[in-house]
Computed example of a mutant assay.
Amino acid sequence: MQIETICSQAGNRKDPSTGAISIPIHHSTTYGHPGFGQSTGFDYTRSLNPTRLALEDTLASLHNGIRGFAFSSGMAAIDAVTRLFRPGDHVLLSDDLYGGTYRLFEQLLRPVGVDATYVDTSNLSAVESNVRPTTVALFVETPSNPTLKVTNIQACAHLARAKNLLLIVDNTFMTPYHQRPLDLGADIVVESATKYLCGHNDVLAGTLVVRDAALADKLYFIQNSVGAVLGPQDAWLLLRGIKTLHLRMERHEENARKLASWLVQHPLVSRVYYPGLQEHPGRSIHEQQSRGYGGMISFEVHSADWIAPFLEHLRVITFAESLGGVESLITYPARQTHCDIPEDMRNRCGVTDRLLRLSVGIESADDLMTDIHAALTSARQEVTVG
């Protein structure tokens, strides 16, 4: 089936006893056994829950994977992946990536002996030159967070197979609607389902999908043993969000393309990052592996002094953490999502004190442009007068 159909049918035909179109929310933590040595397939909700299973089956279908896993947050999903590593292992990661992933590797994994190197994964030669005998995995964000750098997933998959590495792709910005990393050779795809998969800023969740049965068994053991599973209420909300994923992603992208083209021409904006722009260096590769450009834009203003008044003057766009909801949100990465990354590393990657990250919602694009223009103009005037 086409992905639009998979999305729309999420959770349907999962309750044959009643024929419910919307999968019931199974809050029960434990399940009765029909008899000694017998099971309905559900024994304890940490191990398996009917509502979560409907979601996990949907996730696997969306990504053409063999099995999906739903966790209590995006970071819980990434943490589950890192439990595949052992002291002495080395992991290569995109140098421009979410600050929470950096914090996990630096503050929790490095002290217990898992080494990490951050490299420009859009440069395959740089990736290959940093592979060590102890390297076990390559962790890629594409497009990256927040400068939307594009990595060639298929080329990285070829390298990973040649070097016997796991290829893990964070696909949060694209979702399976726009990009399916498993089809391009990745072993694991991870997404913060809090973002576009949910789409309504009301669920905290993370997901993994894999294409190998043996790897799926390992990750299920980790999920069940650690227990950072998604609860049934949130699993149901996430299924409901997925039903409109394809429609929302089309509108997010439509608005983002308009805003990116407009921002490039704006006199108070010095730089725009968006893979749909002709001048984006990774556009051709992105088009080979994705069906769209997504709804995320980052842009720089001329002065860091404008940031605070600009954010205060916004009336439609909300200054807030997170992304991917129907409401437009703007974030200041240097002080928020990437504050744990050292300043020199941030600056090398383009995460300067003049950079803003915009999650474009599904409002009127004209209203969003009016809001940004008015806030930028007011910010410049305040700083100039002051």
Rank of each mutant, 00 (worst) to 15 (best):
Q9A: 06
E4K: 01
V91D: 09
L165E: 11
C339A: 15
A155L: 13
G386C: 09
D187Y: 06
Q265E: 15
C7P: 02
Y293V: 04
R52H: 06
V209D: 00
L268Q: 15
Q154T: 14
V269P: 09
L355I: 05
E343S: 10
D170P: 06
V150G: 07
G199K: 00
P342E: 09
V272E: 03
P342S: 13
Y332N: 09
T337E: 11
T337Y: 06
V190Q: 07
D344R: 09
S144G: 11
G325C: 10
S298G: 14
H178W: 03
K195F: 03
Q265H: 12
T121G: 04
L165F: 12
L358T: 06
A186I: 03
H63I: 00
Q233M: 10
G294C: 02
H252W: 01
P24R: 03
T175K: 00
G41I: 09
Q265W: 05
S359I: 05
Y98D: 10
L268P: 07
D202T: 12
S129N: 15
S8K: 02
D234R: 01
L97W: 02
Y44H: 14
S284E: 15
I66N: 05
G11Y: 00
L323E: 11
E312R: 14
H26K: 02
Y118C: 10
S61K: 12
L263F: 13
I153P: 01
E253R: 00
T147E: 08
D79C: 03
K163R: 15
A334E: 10
H27C: 06
L84N: 10
T135R: 06
T58D: 03
V189L: 02
T18F: 07
A162S: 15
L84Y: 10
I25E: 07
K14S: 12
R83V: 09
G68N: 04
G74W: 01
P232R: 04
T40L: 13
A54F: 04
L314N: 09
S303D: 15
Q289A: 06
A160W: 09
V114S: 03
I341G: 08
G37Q: 10
P333F: 12
N347V: 08
G241C: 07
L219I: 14
S122P: 08
